[in-house]
């Protein structure tokens, strides 16, 4: 039995289908993300987790099926559309421009112009304002170990770049942050810091989708775990209800979980 609850998902996907020629990425896939939770999405290579995330972040359009954000049906044609609905993505490649500075990267694609004639006619950027907000945003996240906000991103370490990318996703009134393998390229210490960053974002009320291969990390931060298999959702479990071995077994099809044993309702 699914628990009846009043909480509405903040992002919901219904019967999502997406194929690339003959390759099926999503096959009637269901998806729910509830407010204020960390939902880990795991699955074997080719299980469709990237496709699922790309559809939700606007990088792909679904062939059929419906996506809802805040109970409102949306159709994302670009990542820009997704952003305007408060869905931000931190890509594995981080999508930062190395030769630009931190503040320029934070505001890339949504620069703020000066007020009055300078901004309207001469389109002058309000760099001072952007630098102030960037500094505040990074220090709010507790990652202001950089020397200067005008430092170019290429001079930062992997973890610092990740922090810049996460800060960018978390700064502009977003509700949902999608993190794609955020610790894949990081060392142990930096990974721990990024995981802490994820928890901090959640504590600030954000809803987070975490794509990861790293089971210990998933079990560390996730509230619920969405397991993707063969283009559809195989199960949703929690770190408390199942073990890492169970999750791997579900991923590979060695184990199935009846719906009444799944965690389809929010835990927070």
């Amino acid at each position: 039995m699914t628990v009846v609850t009043s909480a509405q998902p903040i992002v919901q996907g219904k019967d999502l289908n997406k194929s690339f020629g003959r390759v099926i990425g999503l096959n009637n896939c269901q998806f729910e993300l509830f407010p204020g939770e960390v939902l880990a999405v795991v699955g074997d290579n080719g299980a469709g987790k990237s496709t699922l995330i790309k559809c939700i972040s606007g990088a792909h359009e679904v062939d059929s099926g419906k996506i809802f954000v805040n109970n409102q049906e949306v159709s994302f044609k670009s990542t820009h559309d997704a952003r305007s609905h408060g869905v931000e993505t931190v890509y594995q490649t981080l999508a930062v421009a190395p030769a630009l500075d931190i503040s320029e990267n934070l505001y890339l694609g949504r620069e703020v112009r000066k007020k009055g004639i300078l901004g309207k006619v001469f389109r002058s950027l309000d760099k001072k304002h952007m630098r102030e907000v960037s500094t505040k945003s990074l220090s709010d996240l507790g990652v202001l170990t950089v020397q200067s906000i005008t430092q170019t991103v290429e001079t930062l370490s992997g973890g610092q770049r990740q922090a810049v990318a996460v800060a960018r996703a978390g700064t502009f009134g977003s509700q949902v942050v999608i993190l794609d393998e955020p610790t894949a390229a990081l060392g142990v210490n930096e990974s721990a810091r990024v995981l802490q960053l994820i928890k901090d974002l959640r504590d600030r009320g954000m809803s987070i989708i975490l794509i990861s291969h790293n089971m210990p990390q998933v079990f560390d931060v996730a509230d619920r775990i969405h397991i993707q298999r063969l283009g559809r959702r195989a199960a949703v479990v929690t770190p408390q209800s199942h073990t890492m071995n169970d999750v791997v077994a579900i991923m590979t099809g060695a184990m199935t979980v009846p719906e009444e044993e799944q965690q389809l309702a929010p835990v927070r």
Binding site: L100, L108, R110, L125
Partner: peptide, 27 residues
């Protein structure tokens, strides 16, 4: 001025620096 003071200028630098990142940033 246009290159260093406007959004278009920043986008020119971003596109040359990393077109994929620029695209994903909504440019």
């Amino acid at each position: 001025y246009v290159l260093r003071g406007t959004a278009w200028g920043t986008h020119v630098y971003a596109v040359g620096d990393d077109p994929t990142a620029a695209e994903l940033s909504g440019i």
